[in-house]
């Protein structure tokens, strides 16, 4: 069932309805992971990219494939390996023979030329190949042999990380991590969810995912919804709140930042964080909060929206030190402390 006509300007109510529709289609295949799916769609409509972390078999690849099917957008998948070269993902110039028999160089697009890109186990590729994705993600363009090729919007990159097989991997550099809007964790399913997974995937019929949009209008409709997200209003106090939260992730003793003007100091940050979130973190907070506001039927962002998106938006931007690893402290714990510290500054 396709939703509305392409030319129609989406309203707040339309956004919520489409969002829930896509969500429902995905959950025809994906069992559980409701928060992960919601964060994934939020990042999509906020115009960002997502880093998905989960142990093997938790449905990372299935989730991304199902999303592509539900949105009826072009979808590509790259399995990152050690020997994968940048040209393998961006494309390269090859010699082709024309009809007249002449041979000439022609650009052969790589798998990045699509709407939805799944980079499976991105941490297994070399940093050189990983960085090839940077230009695609940030600027929606690829430059090969001095020629820039523009990617068609919407462009949505989902990269998966396997946290337990770290041998022979290349952890993503901070600069590349910062370019992902959210980091989504896929938790191990509980018993009932696992039973449903087994039932759904071992029967004679596959769950059919019905596209929400038609192929012709999918990209335009999604771009319209992304534009609607940017129209959501944010009051200055809430922007200050987001900025204060991001600054609070920086240790007060960090030599990379200026003096903490808000005087906010979080002990857990000082103890366990080597470097906090960048200004991209504040952007991610606001964009994610805007999506949440639309889902709640509002045209304005509330403090609670910021709090709800903070873990997904900030946890991969906080660099923990050795003390955190030795004490078993993860980034979500730090973000929780930061929210608790910043929350009284709302009024």
């Amino acid at each position: 069932m396709n939703v509305t006509a392409a030319a129609e300007v989406p309203s707040v109510a339309d956004f919520g309805r489409i969002f829930r529709h896509v969500q429902a289609e995905i959950h025809k295949v994906i069992v559980g992971h409701r928060q992960a799916v919601e964060e994934l769609l939020s990042a999509l409509f906020a115009g960002g990219h997502v880093l998905i972390e989960g142990v093997p078999g938790t449905g990372k690849t299935t989730l991304v494939k199902t999303l592509g099917l539900a949105l009826n957008l072009s979808f590509n998948r790259i399995q990152f390996t050690v020997d994968l070269m940048p040209a393998d993902i961006t494309g390269t110039r090859v010699i082709l023979s024309g009809e007249d028999g002449r041979r000439e160089f022609s650009f052969q697009p790589g798998p990045v030329f699509c709407h939805i890109l799944l980079g499976d186990e991105i941490n297994r590729a070399t940093p050189k190949t990983q960085s090839a994705l940077l230009e695609c993600m940030a600027e929606l363009q690829v430059t090969v042999s001095g020629i820039t090729h523009v990617l068609k919007p919407p462009y949505f990159v989902m990269a998966t990380l396997n946290p337990i097989e770290m041998e022979g991997t290349y952890p993503l550099p901070e600069a590349q991590l910062d370019r992902f809007l959210f980091k989504v964790r896929l938790e191990y399913p509980d018993e009932s969810e696992m039973v449903r997974i087994v039932t759904n995937t071992t029967g004679p019929e596959d769950a059919g995912v019905e596209p929400v949009f038609s192929v012709a209008e999918a990209a335009e409709r999604i771009e319209g919804l992304k534009h609607l997200v940017r129209e959501v209003m944010v009051a200055q106090p809430i922007e200050h709140y987001a900025a204060r939260m991001v600054r609070a992730t920086q240790p007060s003793t960090s030599r990379y930042i200026g003096k903490q003007s808000n005087g906010l100091r979080v002990d857990a940050v000082d103890r366990y964080v080597s470097f906090g979130a960048s200004p991209r973190g504040a952007q991610a907070l606001i964009m994610g909060a805007k999506v949440r506001a639309l889902l709640d039927g509002r045209a304005n962002v509330a403090y609670d929206d910021i709090d709800q998106v903070a873990p997904a938006a900030l946890q991969h931007r906080v660099m923990l030190n050795y003390a955190a690893h030795s004490d078993g402290i993860d980034a979500s714990h730090i973000i929780e402390r930061v929210i608790q510290a910043v929350r009284p500054a709302r009024a």
Binding site: M233, R298, N300, V301, A302, R346, A347
Partner: peptide
């Protein structure tokens, strides 16, 4: 805060 308006009035005054 007291009427649980989720920032509507703040946004209006600000906008």
């Amino acid at each position: 805060q007291r009427a649980a308006l989720k920032g509507r009035l703040t946004t209006m005054v600000d906008a």
